[in-house]
Computed example of a mutant assay.
Amino acid sequence: MTNRTAIITGSNSGIGRATARALAARGVRVVLAVRDLDRGHAAAAQMTGRTEVRRLDLADLASVRDFAASLTGPVDLLINNAGVMMPPPGRTVDGFELQFGINHLGHFALTNLLLPQITGRVVTVAAGGHQAGTLDLDDPNWERRPYRPFPGYAQSKLANMLFTAELQRRLTAAGSTVIATAANPGLAATNLLGHGGSAATRIMNALLRPLSQNDDGGARTTLHAATADIPGDSYISPSGFLQARGRPRITGRSAAARDPELARRLWTLSEQLTHTTFPLRIPQR
């Protein structure tokens, strides 16, 4: 991994910080892409190796564009790690529901903008919660439906899975050697488990926390998806009970996450919402 560059979103805390720490210790130049620069610098100060802290707010597409425009040179690895989990109702700067906007659309735009510079791999941190997800392409931002935190979270994680599948399809069609993979961290006791606002969410988080692993355990699947010799569109999950913890391995996904037409439709909608497109040329047949 020496002399390679990795960009990791949301790497000032939790799984992202553990992933950044592990890669930096192995010689990777790690760019911590974070919303809070002070917290990013504090995290970087605890790491060995080469690190750089840059501001990125995935809830603001202008920030995503500024971040991408500021980067020069090749990027070996992009890890789409940042996310929110079951927050109270809220909107991004561009008017998207927070979970769909940050977990999916922000990373969708970032990946498309950086793809001409990416030489190795795009890893997107999904979740086992995608299994419960349904994707309402007529109302992905919960404008006509009553907002519900967990269905919103599950929808965003399903979107992560479909994004990975369609990105890999497009990369293959373009003849690119870049691959896209997805990782399920299992149950990790990160700050995500403290984010929910409703009483039901807080109770569920309190019940899950004793079953959870630490940040380093949660980062194992991301690191495997980023570095192991695996095919494109692999989905890496812990091998233990209920995929909560354990050694990383390739696992299956929900029927919805395997739907190629749904993946194409989500991609088209995401292009329209973010005003970004797949930047590589796909030969016409």
Score class of each variant (00 low, 15 high):
2 T>V: 13
32 L>E: 06
62 A>K: 05
162 L>R: 04
247 R>T: 09
14 G>N: 07
169 R>L: 12
267 W>K: 00
244 A>I: 09
47 M>K: 10
19 T>M: 11
163 F>C: 02
213 Q>C: 15
133 G>K: 03
30 V>D: 09
136 D>C: 11
248 P>V: 00
239 S>P: 08
222 T>M: 12
79 I>Y: 06
38 D>C: 12
200 A>H: 12
221 T>C: 13
145 R>S: 13
196 G>S: 15
74 P>T: 08
166 E>K: 04
158 L>E: 03
227 T>F: 11
22 A>W: 12
95 G>A: 04
199 A>T: 13
73 G>F: 01
284 Q>Y: 12
254 S>R: 00
66 D>S: 12
68 A>L: 03
202 R>A: 14
133 G>P: 13
116 P>S: 03
108 F>I: 05
165 A>M: 12
212 S>P: 15
49 G>N: 00
71 L>W: 04
285 R>S: 15
227 T>G: 11
68 A>P: 04
267 W>V: 01
226 A>T: 02
244 A>N: 09
110 L>Q: 00
95 G>H: 08
279 P>N: 01
223 L>M: 10
47 M>A: 15
215 D>Y: 14
243 Q>N: 13
154 A>V: 10
249 R>H: 14
75 V>Q: 01
204 M>I: 15
163 F>I: 05
206 A>K: 14
61 L>N: 11
41 H>C: 09
202 R>F: 13
168 Q>T: 03
103 N>D: 15
153 Y>R: 07
279 P>K: 03
